[in-house]
Design a binder for these strands. Structure first.
Lengths: 215, 215
DNA sequence: CTATTATTCGGAGCGATGTTCCGTTTTGTC
DNA sequence: GACAAAACGGAACATCGCTCCGAATAATAG
């Protein structure tokens, strides 16, 4: 395949010089603004910091998700590539899973509001969502499979669900010192770790059929 | 204490007739709009549906959180009151915890975007956050303590953290059929259920000190 | 019943933000 | 240097939260 459309990997020969220059400038400005004001910072602010008009931003990055994706592309890629190597280097598949999740969490948590944006209800960030998943879900699946094969964790968990859950748990970290996503994710891992012969899932979580309907 | 200021419990005698009428109308309209468009629906839309001006809405419910709180007050109260009775009726403290969490999840999940709003990054919804916690955290703490005393779950988990985590896991349900908060919460419960003598927490989740710093 | 007063109502208006659109400028090519 | 295509800039429009104050209305006094 040729180089991709937008996002800052390969400038692509057929673009005008000022275009690639502006794209670089925009990525740098966006990275800086994101670090300070979070990924929800006003577009105008990014445009101002880059010294370009707003039309320019929208031409290069039609949606905010495109811009976020481009800014963090390298980190996402690094996280994806860390998967197989962790699987090789860690003592066990479970340990690899734990460490990979650690990387993933660290990535989400150090970006202001990234986790929030990722799970944003509406489809404003569908592109971002898709990109994350395309890159990381296969990696997660591979580690998960290895851990299941090794008997480290119980089967049945889906990569998508796990990543999404972890992403959700990372939302809002920092708003209250009493909340530490790491502890809950650790708990989740413990639950995953149980062998299936111990306690089975039990009754479904939803309220008992006849209980009441006031909620 | 006298009847509370805003929110739809006791109309309070000293208010004008049209004021209490409008308050009722607003609560009904808001409930309807919330059910359709989520708790982030534009204020104007609620005002329009209620057939009042926006000034009226803001006088009765200074912040959006006040309105949300008022609309769901009964349900929150019911959830709070269900705690002790579950503790009495369920077979074990752990089962009570599971069922209470089931109620809590059911409540969050059936309200469009309520979970999202609850954990909203900024402090727009501080009041909502506070109200939820004031009512439900003690209940959660009580069940948790009972479960710990009974040896059903490992100690160390804080009620706030658990509720917050559950709330986070409920975010975005419905956007993708592959994501079911219930399964992950079940996993969390399993992790909580482990006795502390089995596998201890292990190395901290954060990446190993010397690993790398690219993320 | 009417006049007075205090409360409540309604919506125009302001500022912030996302997004589009088109006249102007810049760049690459001949 | 001239020309066309590509890119730029920012004005303009739409939406939304929130405030503010004259108008309307209910409670009360006479």
């Amino acid at each position: 395949m040729p180089s991709d459309s937008h996002a800052g990997e390969a400038p692509a020969r057929n673009k005008r010089a000022d275009a690639v220059r502006n794209q670089q400038t925009l990525l740098a400005a966006a990275a800086e603004v994101f670090a300070v004001s979070g990924v929800d910072a006003p577009i105008r602010q990014i445009a101002a910091k880059a010294g370009v008009g707003m039309g320019t931003i929208y031409r290069h990055f039609p949606t905010r998700a495109d811009l976020i994706t481009a800014v963090y592309r390298h980190q996402i890629q690094a996280c994806a590539e860390a998967g197989p190597s962790l699987l090789a280097s860690a003592g066990s598949a479970f340990e690899a899973l734990r460490q990979w999740i650690g990387l993933f969490v660290d990535f989400l948590v150090t970006k202001h509001g990234l986790a929030d944006a990722l799970q944003s209800d509406s489809s404003r960030f569908a592109v971002l969502h898709t990109y994350f998943l395309d890159r990381l879900e296969p990696v997660c699946a591979q580690i998960l499979d290895a851990a299941i094969d090794a008997g480290d964790i119980r089967p049945g968990i889906q990569p998508y669900e796990l990543m999404r859950g972890i992403g959700n748990l990372c939302i809002g970290r920092g708003s209250d010192p009493r909340y530490d996503p790491g502890r809950l994710i650790e708990l989740l891992l413990q639950g995953l770790q149980q062998t299936q012969d111990s306690k089975e899932p039990g009754t479904p979580l939803s309220p008992k059929p006849g209980t009441q309907s006031c909620l």
